[in-house]
Design a protein around this nucleic acid. Structure first.
Lengths: 153, 153
DNA sequence: CCTATTTTGGATAAAAGAGTCTCAATAATG
DNA sequence: CATTATTGAGACTCTTTTATCCAAAATAGG
């Protein structure tokens, strides 16, 4: 699995938040229902994103979480690094510690290129960009149903 | 982790085999010592590669494993798919089942491109190519020490 | 035929990832 | 002040991955 499940859930939730009114605190239960993710598990993941400063939270009635920045200023890489950690995009393909330009493995160069391609994609893609695309084409963020139904009622 | 540890070990072992005389059966213990991988664990991994037809094995004294094809005809992708399975390079970045051109998630297109880049790299790279590079530049296949010391005595 | 060497396969154990549950802390509202 | 809604934090369970161990099968060589 390229991305951990936590990371995948974190991305889905972040997209959901970016698609909602900015500034509004969204209860996690609300998100877990819509996105069909276990409430408690999602809570854990969002706590990480809060700790990393990507989200901010508010307790009590009318509480919830929201993005600290605009969706257009949050790249996918921010979420991936916050959850899966930077090793994901720096590790050696052969698992050798300290593999780098100075002391590489035979696969280092090619692998570094590949990792860079992943990094670049994640770095260039913003939440807002995906939300726009999702809305325009009614793409899904969940197993069944399109983008729209996430925001009904 | 992009590749599982099993997969990483499988790659290292395959490179080791490709670097040795073709046709010769190499005992797994020999490899596990040189590559500093747990013997029993490596055994399990190589059994998978044998089952997938990438290796063949021979029991008893002077037994061991060897590549079924020449190293120049084995691509990294063969090993990765045999161990981590094809899902690795087909799964949706948001974890949605059945995500594809017909019913995509907002990230599908970009993710597919990224996966293709990984796939292409793994597909274009052969064991022999890496072995040649490793030998030429004395690169390492293990934590310490270069390529050469793997094949002393 | 016996012994040593080696893979095979299954059982088991330990560690990490995924998921659940409970209780405390915070805050709004009547 | 009591009630209710919500996040925070920790303990706990389940599953998968990683790792270890052992007995069985195959085979070479004396």
């Amino acid at each position: 699995m390229l991305l951990s499940k936590s990371c995948v859930y974190g991305l889905r939730a972040s997209l959901y938040l970016a698609a909602r009114e900015q500034g509004e605190f969204i209860p996690i239960r609300n998100m877990s229902d819509k996105l069909e993710i276990s409430f408690h598990f999602l809570t854990k993941i969002l706590q990480q994103l809060t700790a990393e400063g990507i989200l901010e939270s508010f307790k009590g009635p009318n509480g919830g979480v929201r993005l600290t920045r605009e969706g257009s200023e949050i790249q996918l890489i921010d979420i991936v690094l916050a959850i899966d950690g930077p090793q994901l995009l720096t590790e050696c393909a052969l698992g050798l510690p300290g593999c780098g330009v100075k002391n590489p493995c035979p696969l280092h160069d090619k692998w570094a290129e590949t990792r860079d391609a992943i990094h670049e994609m994640l770095e260039k893609t913003t939440l807002t960009e995906l939300v726009r695309k999702g809305k325009a084409e009614n793409l899904r963020l969940t197993t069944d149903g399109g983008f729209d139904i996430l925001f009904e009622n």
